[in-house]
Design a protein around this nucleic acid. Structure first.
Lengths: 208, 208
DNA sequence: TATAATCTGTAACATTTATCACATAGGAAG
DNA sequence: CTTCCTATGTGATAAATGTTACAGATTATA
C-alpha cells in the first residue's frame, strides 16, 4: 500500500505515511456500488487511491443531483466534516470506476490534525478546493440556463475522465442535472449542430 | 473587547481569548458597506461580534445571488479557506446591519490551529456548518421551483432577523434569487392568498 | 432468430419563468 | 400641495422547460 499511497498523496510526510499504513484500512468497491448514503452515519474519512466516485445530493423523491467527482489523491470533504462531529452524511457517493479506498477512522482524522502538519494542510486544502467546486456548482444553477449548465456538466466529465468520449446516456445526464431526458436530447442536438460534440449511442464525443 | 468576545464566542479558551485580544484588530462597518469583493485578496479571517452581514455569489454581469447570513458569534468560512492559501475571495460580503468585526491575520489563523484546541474546533465547526448551509442552498435551486425557493428565502431571513417583519422590497428579493421583480410580486401574491404572509410597502409580514 | 429492454427522436401541449409595457400608489423633497 | 422617485400590480407575450405520447433504432437476451 505504501508505494501507491506515497505516489497519490505526495504531500504526506513520511511520518504520516507510516501512520496511515499502520492505522487505516484499505477497502475496495466495484463500479455501481453506493458507498455512502444520505442520512447514514459516517465513521471514516475516505481517501481515494484509485478509481472514480461521483458525489450526489439527493432530494426526498430520490432525485440525484450531481455535485462533483472524487478522484485518486483526493479525499471526501464531506466525510471529513461529518466525521469530526459524528454527523449524518449529507450526500450520496456512487462508484463509477472500481475504487481502492483508504478509510481513516474519525478519531485519527482528528488526532493527526495536531500531529502531522502535512495532514492538516491536506485537510484544509481539501475543504478549500471542495468549497470552491461547490460554489462553481451554485454559479451554474443560480445564474445559468440549462444549455450552459449542460456544457458545464459535460466539461467536468471530460476533465474527470480525461478523454473526449463520455459514456453517458441522455437519461443519465438528465437525472444528474435534475431535468428531463427530452430537454437534454434537444439541447444536445443544438450542441451537435453548433459543432461542439457528436452524439452516438451511450456516448457523446466532445469536439471542442 | 474581552467581555463581548467571550460572550459571543463562548467556546474559546481563555488562552485563545487572550491571544485574540492581543493580536487581532477590531473594525467597524456601517450598513450598506461592502467589506469583501469577489476577486479581492483576503488577508484576514473575519469574526463577527455584532451586526449582520450577507454573503453573495456574483456573476460576470454583476448579479448578486444570496448565499447566507453571517451573524454574531460566527466566522466567515470562505475567508478562512482563502486566507489559508492567500487566495482571492470567491464571494461578496455586504453589511446589512452595522457590524463590529475582529480581523484575524491569516498567519495567526493558521498558527492557532496548532496551539488552541478550541480554535481548531471552532474552525472545523465553521467549515461544517457553512458547508451544510451551502448544500441546502444547492438543494433549493437544484430541486425546487421559484415558489418554494422564495419560501425558503423568506424563512432564512426570518431566522436571521428573528422577527416576522422582513424589510425587503420585491426587487431586492428578485435580485438575490436571480429572477425578475414581476415573478416575485406574483409569487408573493399567491403566498398572501394562501395566508402565508401579508404584503406591505418595503415590508413583508410572515404569518406562519 | 425472436423477443424484450434500452436508448434516442420528435411532435404536441402545459407550465413556469422572463420580458415588456404601462398603470397606480405611497412616500420624499421641494 | 405639487413633483418626483420608488415600489407595486397586472396584462400581454415570448422563451424555456416539463410532460405525455409514441415511433424507430440498437443492443441484450432468451
Amino acid at each position: 500500500m505504501n508505494d501507491i499511497l506515497k505516489k497519490k498523496f505526495p504531500s504526506f510526510s513520511n511520518a504520516l505515511l507510516i501512520d496511515v499504513n499502520t492505522n487505516a484500512l484499505q477497502q475496495s468497491f466495484a463500479a455501481g456500488d453506493v458507498i455512502m448514503r444520505t442520512g447514514q452515519y459516517i465513521k471514516n474519512t475516505v481517501l481515494v487511491l484509485s478509481g472514480k466516485i461521483k458525489i450526489y445530493r439527493e432530494d426526498e423523491e430520490g432525485s440525484e443531483f450531481f455535485m462533483y467527482y472524487l478522484q485518486p489523491g483526493q479525499a471526501c470533504a464531506i466525510s471529513m466534516i461529518c466525521a469530526t462531529k459524528n454527523q449524518k452524511s449529507q450526500i450520496m457517493a456512487k462508484v463509477v470506476e472500481d475504487v481502492e479506498l483508504i478509510m481513516v477512522p474519525l478519531q485519527l482524522m482528528d488526532k493527526w490534525m495536531m500531529q502531522h502538519r502535512s495532514w492538516y494542510e491536506f485537510v484544509i486544502d481539501t475543504y478549500r478546493s471542495r468549497f470552491e467546486e461547490v460554489l462553481d456548482v451554485i454559479d451554474s444553477i443560480a445564474f445559468r440556463a440549462m444549455d450552459e449548465r449542460l456544457e458545464f456538466y459535460l466539461k467536468r466529465h471530460r476533465d474527470a475522465c480525461d478523454c473526449d468520449d463520455l459514456k453517458l446516456s441522455h437519461q443519465e445526464i438528465a437525472s444528474e442535472l435534475n431535468t428531463s431526458r427530452e430537454v437534454i436530447s434537444r439541447l444536445l442536438k443544438k450542441l451537435e449542430q453548433r459543432g461542439v460534440l457528436k452524439m452516438h449511442r451511450n456516448n457523446i464525443e466532445l469536439l471542442k
